[in-house]
């Protein structure tokens, strides 16, 4: 029991420290802004460990963080194989194809207001649908390997990016477009020098939403059939064998990959849209 009480006391102490720290003037500095959520995360892990050890929760229900950590180190090879199969082959290739196709499609329909009025409501509608449901169909069509996962990802990311890009292409205002016209810029020049740059904040908004969707699509598609590797495959089989520490290890890798992917896209956004007010404000 001492584990449990120790963890609870530590949690309360850390919480009190956070409350105290948040009221101090130093709370405005960047260091403390990172430190407070970091401490909160650590306390959660310690509380988790304390509960599991104190109440002697069996490992098939909830493994302790230390056990998960040990599993991660012990099965690095498996995790890496799954990472390559699911994230690099399935999610990433699907993401690139889907987002590229969506941006090109948006530029194509941008010239026709008729198509825009027709496609946008349909696109908005499809973006709200449970698109993961088409995973079994695409697995049937494209086989069990990563191609079918990439296809699911393409379908999942296509509509959010399309809708956002179309909205972005309409974002430059009339004055700016008139200015381009007075310089006698052609359609291509206006597109490249004014409208695409002006659309970038919107496009990146869509791209950021799509990162999470891509990972979800790639993992869930593996529940419907996959070769004997991949994160979704490993999760569903490890659950069947009740080796939950391996499941949690996969989840940790997925979470890390998801955050890194999102961070990468957000970093590119920062570099591309440095001129936008939302980026200039944060220094």
């Amino acid at each position: 029991m001492s584990w449990l009480w120790g963890a609870v006391i530590f949690w309360l102490a850390a919480w009190a420290f956070n409350v105290w720290l948040a009221k101090q003037p130093v709370a405005r500095t960047r260091m403390v802004r990172l430190f407070i959520p970091g401490l909160f995360g650590v306390t959660l892990l310690i509380l988790w460990e304390g509960i599991v050890r104190g109440l002697q929760v069996p490992g098939v229900i909830l493994p302790a963080p230390s056990a998960i950590w040990a599993t991660i180190w012990a099965s690095l090879a498996i995790l890496r194989e799954d990472f390559v199969q699911t994230i690099l082959k399935g999610a990433l290739s699907g993401y690139v194809i889907g987002c590229g196709a969506a941006v090109l499609m948006a530029i194509a329909i941008d010239r026709s207001p008729f198509l825009q009025r027709g496609l946008l409501p349909v696109g908005n509608f499809v973006a709200a649908l449970p698109v993961v449901g088409i995973a079994p169909i695409l697995v049937m069509w494209f086989g069990f390997d990563w191609q079918s996962k990439a296809a699911v990802v393409v379908v999942m990311v296509f509509f959010p990016v399309l809708v956002n890009t179309v909205a972005g292409l309409a974002a430059s205002d009339r004055m700016q477009r008139d200015q381009m016209a007075t310089w006698s810029a052609g359609y291509g020049q206006t597109l490249l020098k004014l409208r695409l740059p002006a659309a970038m904040p919107f496009i990146f908004n869509g791209l950021k939403i799509a990162t999470t969707l891509a990972l979800i699509g790639a993992i869930v598609a593996e529940f419907f059939g996959s070769p004997t590797r991949g994160m979704g495959f490993r999760i569903s089989t490890a659950v069947g064998q009740l080796s939950l520490d391996l499941v949690w290890a996969e989840i940790a890798v997925a979470a890390l990959a998801g955050s890194a992917f999102y961070g990468l896209v957000a970093g590119i956004e920062k570099a591309v849209t440095f001129w936008h007010p939302s980026q200039r404000g944060r220094r």
Binding site: N18, L21, A27, I36, P37, I219, M231, G232, A255
Partner: peptide, 23 residues
């Protein structure tokens, strides 16, 4: 609650980038 804001909010935002459905 300011402390809650500073400690929970970053995690709430970060958790959106995680493929939760996997669990």
């Amino acid at each position: 609650n300011r402390a809650m804001d500073m400690s929970v909010m970053p995690w709430a935002i970060a958790s959106q980038t995680i493929p939760i459905l996997a669990i």
